[in-house]
Design a binder for these strands. Structure first.
Lengths: 145, 145
DNA sequence: TTGCAATAGTTAGTACACTAACTATTATCA
DNA sequence: TGATAATAGTTAGTGTACTAACTATTGCAA
């Protein structure tokens, strides 16, 4: 049970780093004059990569729950980056798509977002990344219901 | 720049896993009848391990900012797990300490918290943990100002 | 020693996560 | 076919994070 002591701070490390990543990106975004958060970016990127889709699919892909998706889309809609259209096949749902404005933002931000990502991996190798992904996925699976 | 594509989902993986850890612990806590969150636990544990201290120190050790510490302590105080006493040397600050009730909760929860922690590391080795810590710390440092 | 800078903590506003309860619609099956 | 279950999305309440503005106190330097 001495392992418990060793592992005792992993959740602290995880939380701390995840917050730093968001914080860093938020700050860079702001410096560049883009009034979006990392989580809003994730939604925009998903729409840019995979086209119009409903909120459930957006949530599945970005691992966000329904209320969170609702709120983020409200904000993105206010800023005229996305629009909700009635879904042609299902009156319960909407088809969410990028506006012209949204597409333009994604194209403008993309190179900078890649720079932000690379910054996190300075002095780390591709092998490190694979290890990192393997361990995170293991933890995630271990704690899945 | 193909690395950018490879790394493109690391923040997603990080965020997803950090949230799962909190979510899992929260659920276990609730099943066991303990009405505290992971973040509240972190404060209680810090107090149990290092004795009475002011809010700034609590924040430094748990990597939480002042407003967050204020709010968490308000909640823990309402539940009679901690108390704020005037600091003998500095009238700006408080000395925060566990109540009897708080000490009792920490002792009661500790073994279960260790189980929760071990659960996350099933099928992973101590070497994995060291790699994990090294990589998280690197990312953290890379993004520090 | 006074006047300014730094520090401890609080409050308010916005954003996201989780839960639960809710409406509207669609799918299933007896 | 008609009752019921499942699904898509919203709303409300609580907890945490980040920022900014604020009060009170302490420290420091001219």
């Amino acid at each position: 049970m001495q392992e418990a002591k060793l592992y005792s701070r992993y959740s602290f490390l995880l939380d701390r780093t995840a917050r730093r990543v968001k914080q860093y990106a938020k700050q860079r975004f702001r410096e560049l004059g883009w009034a979006i958060t990392v989580d809003q970016w994730a939604i925009l990127k998903q729409l840019a990569d995979h086209g119009p889709q409903n909120q459930r699919e957006l949530g599945d892909k970005t691992f966000k729950d329904n209320p969170t998706i609702t709120r983020i889309l409200d904000l993105l809609n206010d800023k005229d980056y996305v629009e909700r259209k009635p879904h042609p096949d299902d009156r319960r749902s909407f088809l969410i798509s990028l506006t012209k404005n949204g597409e333009q933002l994604v194209n403008e931000c993309l190179p900078e977002v890649q720079k932000i990502r690379m910054k996190a991996w300075e002095n780390l190798s591709q092998k490190d990344f694979k290890e990192f992904k393997r361990i995170l996925d293991s933890i995630y699976d271990n704690l899945s219901i």
